[in-house]
Design a protein around this nucleic acid. Structure first.
Lengths: 266, 266
DNA sequence: AAACGAGGTTCATATAATGAACCAGTGGAC
DNA sequence: GTCCACTGGTTCATTATATGAACCTCGTTT
């Protein structure tokens, strides 16, 4: 392993629960020699990727990260940011993956990636802007938004299923609750026959849901097992997706998306 | 120089004007061997600090930066973020340096650092919240804020100089204009006799002025020369300060703060 | 076809990373 | 007070790793 990688691994030791650590902490966590760790920490500090509390001598993430992240947000278009993550997800899932942003109560396509391994697959055909309540994405968004948002959405007839009346709020509420508990939303043949999908929200820097990511697959491909597989895959990538777009996943959602074992590893 | 530093230097090559570059670009800019640069770029990419456009093969800043910067913003308190920069500035200036945040039209102390080398110096004595128009900080804020802010501030009597009437808008406007052009605001014996100060705004992520940084010094220390020296120092640190707090300096302000020669180096 | 520059790889060499042992300071425990 | 167990940090012979000239392979330009 390269020295660079070893040094950069140090930055990954920092987390919300352990935002700063001393030399010994870092040494224990990496298992490397104290001298090595110290030189790495110093190098990172000199470059501004870490900074040292002058009084406690503990290290914490440095200002260079803020500077560069700001630059990335300014210079890299949103599409490019998610592209690599979504391409990867689409490749491993083998299905159409879709990122949409909310503009008012419309879902607009940010980026999508489709695959060609399956002879039968869902293709993206830009079927116009689907109404919020007709898509798994829309339900994922609502399930992870504050209650007031639902009322506003219900008041707008454009969000309803095409050709039908206003949805029943009570039924919806219980559905949204189970989505929030489960971690993802699903749809089966709701908008287009033969097309199923699973979806999760994408959060912004203030941890509000502002976009969604969904996987669409032919209902013919399988039942509960297929859905479960794709949903797991989607949730496993959830954090990467929102973070690629500059957002932060709320802790409670994160704990649903990544079960304890995996979380310990990260 | 350590390998780590060399690799991290690569990240500093990226800028708003050159947000992505190929291997050859990076090689030319660093003067290092192509193979070396390539290995460094790859290591950074693998760790997520860079990402590669799949089609053009150009490198750009990666998602790991966003992730870590978000963590820093969440876990490191505002005070800690500016501390190192402000301490350094105060040490080199040898004077009282002051960071305040705007809460409504009140300036509240975020952090300040004083020095002890001079027998005569300005000491921070928490003289209550000074009115906006009485401080160089207040004027720096207004000079770099949209016009509407001034009107709102003028409407609030608490922003006026103690014991005086509403300031004349015309006079103020020309003063604020010259501040914006000059890059910094100044005060001489305005609030307290014998105390002078220079101030600049601190910008947030959306490039709006939301805080200020000022240097206070005894008027006895010197006239235009002293002011000029301290103002230059302050402006030279301007970018570091706003970036430490997670903000971004608007390009036009940046070009005032760092004259062409220095900007080329960065 | 030839020439160029792009990104990327190879492998002997040289340089920089490593780690055991070493200071020095701090906060208990007794 | 002394001792002990921790810190964070440094040194220097040893070794592993980074380096770079030469190489390959594409895609453009001439």
């Amino acid at each position: 392993m390269s020295t660079i990688s070893k040094a950069l691994q140090l930055l990954d030791l920092f987390s919300d629960s352990q935002p700063q650590m001393g030399l010994s902490d870092a040494q224990r966590l990496t298992g490397r020699d104290k001298a090595t760790v110290h030189r790495h920490l110093s190098a990172l500090e000199e470059a501004g990727y870490l900074e040292q509390d002058p009084s406690t001598r503990a290290y914490r993430l440095g200002p260079a990260l803020t500077r560069l992240a700001g630059m990335r947000a300014r210079t890299v278009p949103e599409v490019e940011m998610v592209r690599t993550v979504i391409d990867k997800l689409s490749r491993t899932a083998g299905e159409l993956v879709h990122v949409s942003r909310l503009q008012g109560f419309d879902l607009v396509d940010v980026y999508h990636a489709e695959q060609h391994d399956h002879p039968v697959r869902v293709s993206f055909d830009a079927y116009g802007l689907p109404p919020l309540f007709a898509t798994s994405s829309g339900k994922a968004y609502l399930a992870f938004s504050p209650g007031g948002v639902l009322d506003l959405a219900l008041a707008d007839p454009r969000t309803w299923l095409p050709g039908s009346d206003a949805p029943d709020k009570g039924t919806l509420l219980t559905e949204l609750e189970s989505i929030a508990k489960r971690g993802y939303a699903r749809n089966r043949d709701a908008l287009r026959l033969g097309v199923s999908s699973v979806a999760i929200p994408v959060f912004d820097a203030a941890a509000r849901a502002t976009a969604t990511c969904s996987i669409a697959y032919p209902t013919s491909r399988g039942g509960a097992a297929a859905e479960d597989h794709l949903a797991r895959l989607l949730m496993a990538h959830g954090r990467d997706i929102t973070e690629a777009m500059g957002g932060a996943v709320p802790p409670d959602v994160q704990s649903i998306w990544t079960p304890s074992r995996e979380r310990a590893a990260s």
